[in-house]
Design a protein around this nucleic acid. Sequence first.
DNA 1: TCCATTTTCACCTAAAGAGGTGAAACTATG
DNA 2: CATAGTTTCACCTCTTTAGGTGAAAATGGA
Lengths: 209, 209
Amino acid sequence: MRAMTLQITHRQSNVLAFIRTRIERDGQSPTLEEIGEALGIGSVSAVLKHVRSLEAKGRLTIEPHRARSIRLVREPDPMDADTLELPLIGRIAAGEPLFSDSRVDRRLRVSRALFRLRPDYLVKVVGDSMRGDGILDGDLVAVHATAVARHGQVVAARVRGNEFTIKRLHWKSEVIRLLPNSPGFKPIDVDPTEDFAIEGLYAGLLRGR
Amino acid sequence: MRAMTLQITHRQSNVLAFIRTRIERDGQSPTLEEIGEALGIGSVSAVLKHVRSLEAKGRLTIEPHRARSIRLVREPDPMDADTLELPLIGRIAAGEPLFSDSRVDRRLRVSRALFRLRPDYLVKVVGDSMRGDGILDGDLVAVHATAVARHGQVVAARVRGNEFTIKRLHWKSEVIRLLPNSPGFKPIDVDPTEDFAIEGLYAGLLRGR
DNA sequence: TCCATTTTCACCTAAAGAGGTGAAACTATG
DNA sequence: CATAGTTTCACCTCTTTAGGTGAAAATGGA
């Protein structure tokens, strides 16, 4: 499967040139049939294909079902929707906003296809409290930002405005319990009146060695 | 006449990946026939076409009539230099070529900056034998292709042409030992006369959940 | 000179893109 | 409601690129 070229053909260039002259001369775009006449094309559907190609290549826009609705556009910059650019959130002082510029150490690109849940940012893991889930000190955890989490899910949470912590969530009858998964680490109990926030769900992990 | 795209196809990407792994592993480029073997292509002229295409696209150079004269070229645009596109090598039956299309499930993009060692491809982990190193079943291990590995390093190896296995390497006086890191798994002893190959070093890990 | 390798040549298939026809169906709007 | 204009559909051609086979010829180096 070849990627579509943004390069336009001679034919398409002629179509574009004609549209441009007509817009500049008449102040409105020509109809498909008028374009066909000028180019010697006997069927409007062929003309439409050219126009659609030009639209796909970002050279013009056309509103559906609206006559004479072609508008020319300038060159945009196509960024790949397939590749995410995730900010790596650094250490956060208590109460500080998450996405303040000073907190974003750097941005890493990674394919969207790797994840089931679309990740929104990365957090660096501190400590080995989730070793049992294959999450090690220094790993970058991909977090899907959401406040809703179910019993048993691994979440990124913040207690009393402090650093991120990655733990497994347990609802223990009116008490929230954050469960580590590694010997020697104790659960954190939080009562909901406390300053506590689930920042998001564990969506994946990146590790460089 | 359409302008040639600098975009390479999957097939060409596989050719390139194989050449890169061989150059990094052996220090010299493979012959056209060796590339053909690895890709499952039965004729060298078809291989040459791929190589010529890659040359035309500025990814490598090749001196006329000189055997093993392929040299890789620096990645041109900043996007490529900074974002890797790694092939995910799927399950390999014994003796099957590594980089055949049927083995490359898909390719994932990830920032070069994540890794210390430049990874060349991804391998899907089967089993939990390396759980102690935070490598779980289903994880994608990034492999830096090289044949040289030191005592104690985590390597991707293949024994008797079988599947990839990720293990810690131990030189045990003329005997090679592949060490798992998880209760219930036993070391694999290999004697060097056997069909055994170190395919590369553990460079990192990607996990989607 | 021999041989491993590269190169050329003739001849294939398949897919995608460009360009097209003609007719039917739909839609916005005076 | 007409109808000018747009959209969809089915069905073509032609060219380019990718990918391939198999054999013969040319070449560099030991």
